[in-house]
Design a protein around this nucleic acid. Structure first.
Lengths: 211, 211, 211, 211
DNA sequence: AATGAATGAGCATTCATTCAT
DNA sequence: GATGAATGAATGCTCATTCAT
């Protein structure tokens, strides 16, 4: 059984393991990420791992939940910061891109979660979708999004675009040559790609072209 | 070492193993899909597997390639069948949806392929993207798609939408309650969801709303 | 290294750990009784355990010795209390039964001790046997036990009867349905079983039936 | 999952593992008997073990059941062979002694089974008890056993005597010096001890001394 | 006196793969 | 062509024990 750390030192150790596990899962995938590899990278003994996490599965789920709350915070903060010209949900979408460009771990972990921890994966997408839905509905009320757009469908479409475009240009590199298995962090989404995507999204949602 | 089948019987055995492997990989995921499970489901001995495939990794890659060529054929045939009103690339997009609704194995296998066989996975998305690009470029020439659309970005965006919307409404069920672990095939994408998605896509690509 | 407690508080802590360990060993067996479980049950930290006992093996041996001296005292007191009609060794046998009925831990611990601490286990049976031998020899001198009885063989036979009958009717329950794994204390040996056993023992030892 | 062997070779391998496991469990105890030790002694790979047994626990239970049926056969055959003077149940008792003298594994395994496999252990003692009860009841009908003896109590008493006397003189050596941990097979129960035990049993059961 | 964090050797079990038949 | 017996490296996890505070 795992326990909550009771001292400052324990808290730091636990946090280090969690951070390292996120990296290792993202780089090697759930199955190739053995407990030995994780504990070696975190520079602790194997037993220490089980002091704070009850199983490999459990830490994976915590990694997912942790990433989820981090993206959501990033998106929320970006939305809240915007005032006028660039609408909240566009800012959120941009924040999502920026976050993934900086944390490619996000994709890599989510894409394998379907078989490892389906429940938390659903939670992940659904909570993000809810954020988009809220933003889009607000924008619809302000007349900035066409009224006939189904906000839930739009939300999932936006997530799909973000994930696939991010995967293509952030993760696999801009040349499309493939990123290799080293999972090295690329330097973010090229500006022109971002512009193209935003233009597509603008048009899709804009009340202008509505019949 | 694996060999090509030399008799009619061998060909059938090999095909049965491949078909069964696709199902098992889709239902249980690459790692939980052991060779024993596959050979038991295919009703052959373990040794028989290695007669036709040199490794687990190899058959997984063949499964991916096989699915890839099947989607592409489905999309190609759908596009070719269309003549006037519904444009080729819209038909292809619809065909992609229909295929995945009928073969949820597609998503489930592709989503785990990143860590198992990155090369073929890239090939999969890139060949599909190429198909979309060709269609979109043609449509642009005919004036059916706005000229300022970057066809490659649009292609990947379409794939992202297809994958995420399909995952949400086809794989996890229309109520969002989650699909369970049995991987049972749902009955396809609800018509109204499909309509909403198509409307978004229309607007995004349409030359009407262009500045 | 373990130390002798130097304060009143230390003595109480040590005693509590020993008492709790007896219960845990009896309920779960030596191997399933981890130090964590013992220290948790005793409500002390893990380190505290090693303040008073140098190893798990050592505390187990102390548990055995402790139980041994407790049975022997019970038997001795019962024997001494008797004066005339019910002979000393019969009283001792009855006391052994009563003790085990009230402390099922005795059996459960002794039955696993063979592999954990053979030395102390031998000591346990041998000291008890010596007590019986003394009693039986005395009774033989008084003519209450047949002269041709080998007192040592009789002593071990009595222990065997006590252990097996106790196990069957005290530990596993009177219905023979099995006691479950919870190690719940049953309510002692039914009176009629005790009478049957005593009659057998009487006859076996009695000088009457001797040739 | 373990499977039944399908070939002659498999059957032999499975039998060898079972035989070796009996020895190893008897010599080192359940917990110290690791799968590696068992498979090394059986000269097979570790994986081979799991071809025929689904777990360590399972093979232990099979070992118990196997020993149980072997003692019972030995006792049954001994009983059946007797005709007149030496009664069936006395022959059974003697056979039990002989068997354990030749197979000290019996005790050593049964004494640890309480915590490892309580169900099968109960079954073991109960089936043996049933055999004794049948024999004793028959002897009672023939007037060779006192009518007021409770056959079930007598059965368990006999088992207890057998186990304890056997443990003392067969397992630990005749000098009482303790057998050490090597589990070396001693050369059986000394004749005079056997005679003393039989005399006690005779007297306890005999209809002569009855009131 | 007391604690809980840290350790690492050890264990049961799985599974892709080989090979003799 | 087909099979199933055999393998052993690798993995997740446990637990007695040590030690700094």
């Amino acid at each position: 059984m795992s326990t909550q750390p009771r001292t400052e030192r324990g808290t730091r150790t636990r946090a280090r393991i969690l951070a390292v596990a996120t990296e290792v899962f993202a780089e090697r995938g759930y199955h190739d990420a053995s407990i030995v590899k994780i504990t070696e990278a975190a520079e602790v003994g194997q037993g220490t791992f089980y002091l704070y996490f009850s199983s490999k599965q459990e830490i994976f789920e915590e990694v997912v939940r942790d990433l989820n709350s981090r993206v959501r915070r990033a998106m929320f903060e970006a939305s809240s910061a915007e005032t006028e010209r660039l609408d909240a949900e566009r800012a959120g979408f941009r924040a999502f891109f920026r976050f993934t460009a900086e944390n490619p771990a996000l994709y890599r972990i989510m894409r394998q979660a379907e078989f490892v921890a389906p429940e938390v994966l659903h939670m992940h997408y659904e909570t993000i979708a809810r954020g988009y839905v809220a933003g889009l509905t607000g924008a619809q009320d302000n007349g900035q999004v066409a009224p006939d757009v189904d906000t839930e469908v739009a939300a999932w479409a936006l997530m799909g675009i973000g994930e696939m475009v991010g995967m293509r240009w952030v993760l696999w590199g801009r040349d499309g040559a493939g990123a290799g298995t080293d999972g090295a962090a690329p330097d973010g989404l090229p500006a022109e790609i971002f512009d193209h995507v935003m233009r597509l999204v603008e048009r899709a949602l804009s009340p202008e072209g509505a019949p």
